[in-house]
Design a protein around this nucleic acid. Structure first.
Lengths: 230, 230
DNA sequence: TCAAAAGTGTTCTCCCTACACCCATGG
DNA sequence: CCATGGGTGTAGGGAGAACACTTTTGA
């Protein structure tokens, strides 16, 4: 018999965090999911997350759970919505603060510690537990919103990349197609990209310049507020 | 001796809502605050809010508390951040979901039921309880963000108004000045305003047309997504 | 007769869009 | 020699910003 030592005058909900983690690889936007081993929703997939401890903020909790369950760490993690439908968890009242996180898949390969964690393409999402399908839709919406105001590529791209690669990231996230030349002009115009000496041969046809993000310019623009039209 | 009948295996935080309520009157953006009658922070001012019940979502809780504590109801209320610093409440662990609400002050005058509730101009905010000063700053930021994508005037303006009045609302919220003619052109261009037959004499100098919002056009634009540049 | 408020229109400029040309490589 | 991919430049259109004229009233 388990002991219940924490007693209150009024009923208290549980508070959890859930992390919608986006990555980018092979020209595809991907999401990290964990297969549930326990009821309810056993065998279904869900976002990593867990209970918030009494001595940590929800941000700290989200980062901790992310690390514990997947081994991943990230610079970009932010809350985007609090899910609080009284019936959202069949066991008990659980209020969950959902986070949007971005990771560089190029750096963390094999970093998905949990054996039951897997990256999914957006068009191959399996059935999700709880209200996590709605969570995913809202996270994606938030990501698309964010991309207009912040050069999120910073967090999803490898250190060095070609303009084409960056364009494909934007196209994957927004699900649109851009004109090659206009896209380059627009990105270079903000001065947040540094053209490197280095080149690569993305195809055997022709070599392409590599670029890196200019963190200083980026931080400067983040302060002023900047708007990227698409 | 009070009884504590709700027991859990692990400690649970309390979950509350807080409402940052904006109104607009006398060419000023205003915020509704309630004076605290109890410790902690007795005598300090705070946003209306309270504990979330077990059978309601945070949205429902926020609306309920708003109604209970101020008598106000609103169409526009949305969460904007979850405040969760473990130390934010000196009594116990309290996680609060903060809401942004807009009310038409022209319709609710005298509607502040609570004797200890008062509207404050933004430049006359008294000392606030808990982390509510940070809450206010973030709410204001969110409001300014929102105004670029939604004709929030709907919720803050009276039914009928002049272009000048609408302009002054935008100027009050964003703390900038606009060219009279360009502002009118921009607003009319979206087709969300209906020019009425009616006129008023805002000054004894000359009469001005009254306008009302065109809800249909507004809903149409809200779906498509629209962007108001400033 | 003059100042103040409001209604209306024009021009300039810049940025976004669409689109074309050049060059190098591998087959 | 030609198809493919990538680097660069140009013309047109639309929307925002700057700006001027007219009308009406009260002092």
């Amino acid at each position: 018999m388990e002991e219940k030592n924490y007693c209150y005058k009024y009923p208290h909900p549980s508070v959890t965090t859930d992390c919608v983690i986006f990555g980018y690889e092979d020209m595809k936007l991907k999401v990290l999911l964990i297969e549930r081993g326990l009821e309810p929703y056993k065998g279904k997939w869900a976002f990593p997350g867990g209970f918030v401890k009494m001595d940590e903020s929800v941000e700290e909790g989200a980062r901790r759970e992310l690390k514990e369950e997947t081994g991943l760490e990230t610079n970009m993690i932010e809350q985007f919505y609090c899910f609080s439908d009284p019936q959202r968890d069949p066991r008990e009242r659980v209020i969950s603060v959902a986070f949007l996180a971005l990771v560089k898949m190029s750096e963390v390969h094999g970093g998905d510690d949990a054996a039951n964690a897997r990256w999914f393409n957006l068009d191959e999402i399996p059935q999700l537990a709880f209200d996590h399908d709605r969570m995913l839709r809202m996270a994606l919406q938030k990501l698309r919103e964010r991309i207009h105001f912040r050069p999120i590529g910073f967090e999803l791209m490898p250190e060095k990349f070609t303009l084409k690669q960056l364009q494909m990231l934007y196209e994957a996230i927004l699900d649109v197609r851009f004109d090659r030349r206009n896209f380059a002009k627009k990105m270079l115009h903000f001065d947040i990209l540094t053209q490197l000496e280095e080149t690569v041969w993305p195809t055997p046809k022709r070599e392409a310049y590599l670029y890196s993000f200019n963190k200083e310019k980026y931080d400067e623009l983040k302060q002023k507020g900047f708007r990227l039209e698409f």
